[in-house]
Design a binder for these strands. Structure first.
Length: 467
RNA sequence: GGUGCGAUGGCCGAGAGGCGAGGCACAGGACUGCAAAUCCUGCUACACGGGUUCAAAUCCCGUUCGCACCUCCA
């Protein structure tokens, strides 16, 4: 039995995972800043860490999974202006879109999903500690800055030197003691939301909320902190700075997922609508989108293409189809189990691509077993495949993916098709192949695929779309 | 300027000193009335130049190219 090793950005090595408290794992994932509709890059992050969550749970840990929502920031305020709506309505609208997108690809809800604006008290408390300890200062304009020169260490995660950084262009003429100091809190501006503090009215800076909320729900030290690669600097560096300056040990392991890229480049928010989750869900099912986004290793860039997505979806249907056939033949649902190969792969820093190879192997064995009529081997393969799909969040029998049609409707549809198939079988029996092919072609034109098996004909909805 | 990541067959995509990952596509075969589905077989790759080693896709040095971050990006 192998044990879990995870890659830690801080040490740049993969190392054995040992939780702080035996049997329990605490995870903090930087979730969305709800300033626009989610694209597949955003959702990939949630999905990669959902696989981590599921694997930890499957491995027997009790997981506390916190994924925040940052519902106040500059871009949300800008958006409120362009959308002519209150900032809180904008934030809520996009938060719902994120929730819908996560649900569509079967990302499990986190244990708790704290919002930044709900934790102003904790932020003020954290700032008080930082000011008291001399790590932060209020220069009098309403802003509060963290003094990076006062820190024992800084930039350990990104391995940069403070003096090598290009200085921020807003540094000139500001109230900052050092141009690299960053704002924990921003003084109130006319027309913008603000909250009262001992140092004057204002609103949170970008980084403070994660330190405050991680502390609120996971305590001074926790196991895993995750997020996108682009958060390493400045967001995570600043979280570390704030938290350590306050005397907290903070995260034990840092995990970062890579991006979805297009034409070799990181997706940006100005890219248009084509890669929004809600658009792609018009092309493939949620389970297929998940299979595609989850198939690359979380630390590898995933180069998006419509062809790759379709190819991936086709591959998934092949696996799914085996499970459906296995259930028909066995007359019983597959019981999820895990092969040793799959376990070893997942334990090796969530090596999903290697894990997928084990599914392919099980699939080949399972399909051969169907041909051979080897019930025991069919069951073993089906169980292993279902177990693997469950961990990857792609179990086709998961109620999360239940279709929208009612059983009455699908029963009626099956009845109609069975009638047609009976006609076709009769035609084939009298060797009237012109008539039988006409029926098959007619059904195909309606998007229904017919396969002749030793157990008789079976039908399925062909989901392959042109383009 | 600083700090990282990467380059693998027609395509996608793992691996990280020695035993051909896997998938897709393609070709041949089995099965089929023909298909579909499935199975079998084939397709032997690691950017370039040096070096270390009995052995390098993997380690070291250099080069080229690509990508990213450097204070409100997942």
């Amino acid at each position: 039995m192998s044990s879990l090793a995870l890659y830690d950005t801080l040490t740049r090595t993969s190392r054995p995972f040992t939780p702080i408290k035996a049997g329990q794992v605490s995870v903090y994932l930087c979730g969305a800043t709800v300033q626009g509709s989610p694209h597949i890059g955003h959702i990939r992050s949630g999905l990669n860490f959902d696989i981590l969550n599921r694997w930890l749970t499957k491995s027997g840990y009790e997981v506390t999974f916190i994924r925040n929502v940052t519902d106040i920031d500059d871009k949300i305020l800008q958006k409120a202006v362009t959308e002519k709506a209150p900032w809180w309505a904008v934030a809520m609208k996009y938060e719902r879109e994120f929730s819908d997108a996560y649900a569509a690809v079967n990302v499990l809800p986190p244990t708790y999903e704290p919002r930044a604006t709900g934790h102003i008290t904790q932020m003020i408390q954290l700032m008080s500690i930082l000011i008291e300890r001399g790590a932060a200062y209020a220069p009098g304009n309403g802003d509060i800055y963290l003094s990076v020169r006062s820190l024992d260490s800084y930039l350990t995660l990104s391995r940069q030197k403070l003096d090598d950084l290009l200085s921020a262009d807003d540094a000139a003429g500001s109230f900052k003691k050092d141009p690299r100091d960053f704002a924990l809190w921003k003084g109130a501006k006319p027309g913008e939301p603000s909250w009262p503090t001992p140092w004057g009215d204002g609103r949170p800076g970008w980084h403070l909320e994660c330190s405050a909320m991680a502390h609120a729900y996971l305590g001074e030290a926790f196991d895993i902190h995750g997020g996108g690669l682009d958060l390493i600097f400045p967001h995570h560096e600043n979280e570390i700075a704030q938290s350590e300056a306050a005397g907290y040990a903070f995260a034990n392991i840092w995990m970062h997922n890579a991006w979805v890229t297009t034409a070799g480049e990181k997706m940006s928010k100005s890219l248009g609508n084509s890669l929004l989750v809600k658009e792609l869900l018009k092309q493939v099912r949620g389970i297929e989108l998940r299979w595609y986004l989850g198939s690359a290793h979380y630390r590898s860039m995933l180069e998006f293409s419509a062809e790759a997505l379709n190819e991936s979806a086709t591959g998934f249907r092949r696996i799914e189809s085996f499970l459906f056939r296995a259930v028909e033949i066995l007359g019983t649902q597959a019981t999820p189990s895990l092969s040793q190969g799959f376990i070893d792969a997942m334990n090796d820093d969530l090596a999903v691509p290697t894990a997928l190879a084990t599914i392919s192997e099980s699939l080949r064995i399972g399909n051969s077993a169907i041909t051979a009529g080897d019930m025991k081997a069919i069951a073993t393969s089906a169980n292993e495949i279902r177990g693997a799909l469950e961990v990857l969040g792609c179990d086709p029998f998961d109620s999360a993916f239940a279709g929208a049609t009612t059983s009455a409707e699908s029963g009626a549809l099956d009845g109609v098709i069975q009638l047609a198939l009976a006609q076709r079988t009769a035609a084939r029996d009298r060797k009237d192949f012109a008539a039988s092919d006409e029926i098959r072609d007619g059904l195909a034109a309606l998007g229904i695929t017919i396969e002749d098996t030793p157990q008789g004909p079976r039908w399925s909805i062909s989901r392959t779309e042109e383009r």
